[in-house]
Design a protein around this nucleic acid. Structure first.
Lengths: 214, 214
DNA sequence: GCCGCATGGATAGTGTCGCTATCCGACCAA
DNA sequence: TTGGTCGGATAGCGACACTATCCATGCGGC
C-alpha cells in the first residue's frame, strides 16, 4: 500500500500522515526505492487508532506518542505497562498545595476513600493522576461555594466502581497482553466521551420525565 | 475593589482579567473616574466561575461567553434556559452521515434508546449534542474493529441514568432559578472530570484487588 | 501646586498546537 | 522523452489563550 492509498482508506490527508510519521506516531513504511514506501494493514490500523485518540479522545499529539510508546513496550510487565500507558494520559495541572481549598479538597477525597474502603487506591494517592484530578475538581467546587463533600461523592463513586468492574471484565475477554493494553487505553480514552454523552442523554430523559418539555 | 485587588483575591493576573473583560466574560466594573473602576463580590464570584470553566472544565473562551449568556438570560423559561446553556457546551464535530460506521453506530444507539425505554431522549435525537457525541464515539470503536453494541452499552447507560437522577435531585435543592441553572452547568462541566477521575481511581482499586501490584 | 508612580484601556505580540501548502529531486508509465 | 506521481523537507497558517508594552490619566506625598 502506498501513502496515497493509506490516505484514501483512512480518510486522512497525505500531508497529515506525513506529519504523523514525522512526529513518530506511525512507523515508517518499508522503503521500496527513493520515491516509494510500502505500508500494510497494521499501519492502517495504527493510523485509525491515532486518529481516534486525537479526534474523539482529544489527546495532544505528544501524548499519543507517549501512550503508544508504552503500549508498544513489550519489555514491561502487564500492570506496569498498562499503568504507564494510562498515567501518560492528560492530567490536570498540579494543584497548589498551599491553597486552603486544595487542602480541604484533599481531606474530603481521603475521607471518601476511607468510607469506600478503597485501601489500594489510598496506597496510590501520591502518584495517581486520577487522585490529583479529583482533588482539583473538588477544590474548584469549594472555591465556588458549593459543598461537594465525601458524602455527596460517595454514591457517584459507587456507580463508577460498578462501571470499572464492567471495564475490567471486558478487558479480560481479550486473550493477548498487547490487545488488553490497547483496549484498556481505548476504554479509558474513547469510553469517556461515551459515558459523558450517556449521562447527558440520561439527564435529558430524566428532566423530560420530571418536568416535561414545558 | 479595584482591578489589582480583584486580581489578588482571585489569583488571576490583571492582564488576564482585562482580556476576559474585553471578551465579555466579565461585566465591566463601575467606572469611578478615567483611571479607576470598582468591582464587587459578584465580579469576584463570576471571575472564579469563569476560571473554573476554563481551567478545570477546559471550555474555550468563546464557549464560556455563550454558556454564561444563556445562564444570565432571564427572559427564557427554565427548561429552555438550562437546555440552551448545556447545549452550548463543546460538541463533537458533526459525523459524516455517508460513513458506514457512523450509520451503524446510529442504529446501535437508537436500539439502545429503545431497549432502555428512553422515549423522551429519542424525541430529542435530531437536536441533542449528547446523541451526536455518543454516535461519534461508538463509530470510532467500530472503525477500530471493536464491537460496542447496544447490549454492551446498556449497563453503562443504566449507571449513568442513576447518576443523572442524583444530579437532578441535587439541582432541585437550590431554591432560585438562577442558582439552578448555574449549578446545572457546573454539574455538567466540573462534575465530568470528577466522575472520570472516580472511574480511573475505581479501575486502579479494582485492578489492584484482582491482580495485586505485581 | 508638583512630581512620580500606579492605574486602566488599547493594541500588538508570543508560544503552542495541529495541521497544510509548497517545493524538490527521483522515479515510472506512455 | 515527457508528463504525472511519489515521498521527504521546510515553511507557513489559523486558532487560541494569554501577555507585554504603551499611553494618558490622576492620586498621593511633599
Amino acid at each position: 500500500m502506498r501513502l496515497a492509498e493509506l490516505s484514501e482508506r483512512s480518510g486522512v490527508s497525505t500531508a497529515t500522515i506525513k506529519y504523523y510519521l514525522r512526529e513518530g506516531l506511525l512507523a515508517p513504511g518499508r522503503q521500496v526505492n527513493a520515491t516509494t514506501a510500502d505500508y500494510d494493514e497494521e499501519h492502517l490500523r495504527r493510523l485509525r487508532l491515532v486518529r481516534a485518540l486525537i479526534q474523539v479522545g482529544r489527546l495532544p499529539v505528544a501524548t499519543v506518542r507517549e501512550v503508544l510508546g508504552h503500549v508498544d513496550d513489550e519489555s514491561l510487565g502487564r500492570t506496569i505497562r498498562m499503568g504507564a500507558a494510562l498515567w501518560a494520559l492528560p492530567q490536570m495541572p498540579e494543584p497548589d498545595t498551599e491553597d486552603a481549598y486544595v487542602r480541604a479538597a484533599r481531606d474530603e477525597v481521603d475521607q471518601l476513600l476511607d468510607t469506600l474502603g478503597w485501601s489500594n487506591a489510598k496506597a496510590l494517592v501520591t502518584i495517581s493522576p486520577a487522585y490529583r484530578s479529583l482533588v482539583v475538581a473538588v477544590a474548584a467546587f469549594r472555591r465556588l461555594g458549593h459543598d461537594w463533600g465525601a458524602e455527596r461523592m460517595e454514591p457517584y463513586a459507587r456507580l463508577m466502581h460498578r462501571a470499572a468492574v464492567l471495564d475490567l471484565d471486558f478487558v479480560e475477554t481479550y486473550p493477548s497482553e498487547a490487545e488488553r493494553v490497547e483496549i484498556a487505553v481505548l476504554g479509558a480514552v474513547l469510553a469517556e466521551p461515551m459515558l459523558l454523552a450517556l449521562r447527558r442523554l440520561a439527564q435529558e430523559e430524566e428532566s423530560a420525565r420530571r418536568y416535561g418539555f414545558e
